[in-house]
């Protein structure tokens, strides 16, 4: 893993983009990394296009927003179309929702479809946790943060009522990641 990882989570407002970024950043902080996070705010965060950006680093972060994108999570076609071009060629990674996004085939970037929304509905009866399925898959595949740290982050930022559901979604995501990775 390189010293600094720049991650953008993107999708519609309401898909849990901001929460996914928050959990990823929190997990990075728990792992002892330097983290800078920022996200869409106000009406943007509720509307059609929403993003959350995280810089994870082993040393203090000079510029806290993204300079390039190492990892893109695209939960909607709109987000994919808007952001896929910024992902670093060769080393970059795009995770997209395989039922909601049709990826471009010509990209020189590793692209992986994740059935996050589909599985969230089918297995957990709640499409709201597709974001957490994505996080599980991402972490299983890349280990940019530790699974333990992310579980702790969930317990810190998700209300008690939805905590078990989110933890299940995370486990489901890890299984998906393992299947793809393995």
């Amino acid at each position: 893993m390189t010293q600094t990882q720049q991650i953008r989570v993107s999708g519609f407002g309401g898909q849990g983009v901001v929460l996914a970024g928050l959990l990823l950043g929190q997990a990075g902080a728990i792992d002892g990394k330097y983290v800078s996070g920022s996200n869409s705010y106000g009406a943007q965060a509720r509307g059609s296009g929403c993003k959350s950006e995280i810089v994870l680093s082993e040393s203090p972060v000079d510029f806290p927003h993204l300079i390039g994108v190492d990892i893109l999570i695209a939960m909607s076609q709109g987000a994919y179309d808007l952001y896929h071009g910024e992902v670093r060629e060769d080393s970059g990674l795009i995770l997209y929702d395989q039922d909601l996004v049709v990826p471009k085939e010509s990209l020189k970037v590793k692209q992986i479809g994740i059935p996050a929304t589909h599985l969230a509905i089918k297995r957990l009866k709640n499409k709201q946790v597709a974001n957490i399925v994505f996080l599980g898959a991402l972490i299983e595949m890349t280990r940019i943060v530790s699974p333990k740290a992310l579980q702790k982050a969930i317990s810190m930022h998700v209300t008690e009522r939805f905590r078990p559901l989110n933890l299940k979604a995370f486990k489901l995501g890890i299984d998906v990641g393992r299947e793809i990775h393995g």
Partner: peptide, 10 residues
Amino acid sequence: DEAVGHLRET
């Protein structure tokens, strides 16, 4: 400023 107020960091 807004960018620092909303910036989330360690």
